[in-house]
């Protein structure tokens, strides 16, 4: 299984907003693990889907040169369950970005109806402090494999290309 929790971007406005969808399929093993008799999308993975949507928006804003890590989930409210056959939509908005990091707000929709909000703070790991706490010097977030994958989403990997 690959750690990919969004199927495609349906909107991508660099440095502003990204909208991604995920179709929830009964074939996915993880749906059956939380409550074996009642398959549903785990809330933690909905948060991950938003983190991937917003994280790519943040990374793209600096042309994937920063090592973007999820620092803090400021708020996560999911008011309903999501079951197989339904579609999740993640709407992420870039609220702020600078050298130290970024913050995003996000809406979660199920089949087009709002069911939650997830706001996230991302950190840009700088070389000096990263080395002090043992974070690798290379860009372990936006790797070559990631950039290849990103091209399949039809998101251009340079803000200047848009």
């Amino acid at each position: 299984m690959r750690w990919i929790w969004i199927d495609k971007f349906v909107e991508f406005e660099p440095q502003k907003r990204a909208v991604a969808v995920k179709n929830v399929s009964r074939a996915e093993d993880h749906l059956h693990d939380q409550y074996p008799a009642y398959p549903m999308m785990p809330t933690s993975l909905i948060v991950e889907g938003m983190a991937q949507t917003a994280g790519i928006l943040v990374g793209h804003a600096r042309r994937f040169s920063e090592r973007v890590i999820l620092a803090k989930i400021k708020r996560a409210t999911i008011d309903d369950i999501v079951v197989p056959g339904e579609q999740l939509t993640y709407e992420a908005t870039l609220e702020r970005i600078d050298d130290s990091g970024a913050s995003t707000t996000g809406r979660v929709l199920r089949n087009g109806r709002l069911i939650g909000q997830i706001d996230i703070v991302f950190s840009h790991v700088d070389r000096a402090s990263g080395a002090q706490i043992g974070i690798p010097d290379h860009n372990f977030v936006f790797t070559d494999d990631f950039m290849r994958l990103l091209r399949t989403y039809n998101v251009k990997d340079s803000a200047q290309d848009d």
Binding site: A71, K72, V121
Partner: peptide, 13 residues
């Protein structure tokens, strides 16, 4: 430590 970044963002806003 990571809260400091969040605090700065919130104060700015």
């Amino acid at each position: 430590s990571i809260d400091f970044l969040d605090i700065v963002f919130r104060l700015e806003k």
